[in-house]
Amino acid sequence: MLYTTQLQFAYPGGQPFAFPDFQCEKGETLLITGKSGSGKTTLLHLLAGILQPTGGGVWIDGVDLATLQGSAIDRFRSQQIGLVYQKPHFVASLSVLDNLLLPSFFGQKKRSTQQLRHLADQLGIAHTLSKKPFQLSLGEQQRAGIARALVNEPPVLLADEPTSALDDENGHKVFELLQEQALQRGASLIVVTHDNRLKAVVKRQLQLH
């Protein structure tokens, strides 16, 4: 589903990163761990096409990301990849519902308010849709962030430290929810984290050095 080959990246004037090859099948969860500075977030941005690798490549659904130029990569990302962040930021001036509509607008995938309500219902945030993001609790924000990643039903879900800002209970809930939603949709889930709590629950792990 998603795989990398001899992926390399170097920030201007910085140490080059070389990442081990890996793949992630549909419905599979892959945990990528490593200490700070090991290039976890860099790897995630490479997988999402936000950064362009200096060597090697990323294939998603048989598409080499390097072949996508300009706005094509933006379109591809919005349709094929759902991103979940450590602290789910939103467009502060828009309601939660409008924030959930953003991916469908930019990905040009029509989503009815009804579909979004259904999704919000599944994630337990139906009551927050008309609120502004800052009015939500941290747990609700994280779930809204997951909902936003799922709006376009992407085959790949990438999560950057999705649980490290949450306490044990909430962290556990959020991760379960993420895994459950990915499994339901047959999506590949790649989680980048240094959260040791997750290491205990995920089988496939990749350690970065």
Binding site: A48, I50, S71, D74, R75, R77, S78, Q79, L83, H89, F90, V91, A92, L102, P103, F106, G107, R148
Partner: peptide, 14 residues
Amino acid sequence: YELALLRSLGCRKG
């Protein structure tokens, strides 16, 4: 961050 977020959600540069 908000604008970067928009970009990550598929918003084009233009």
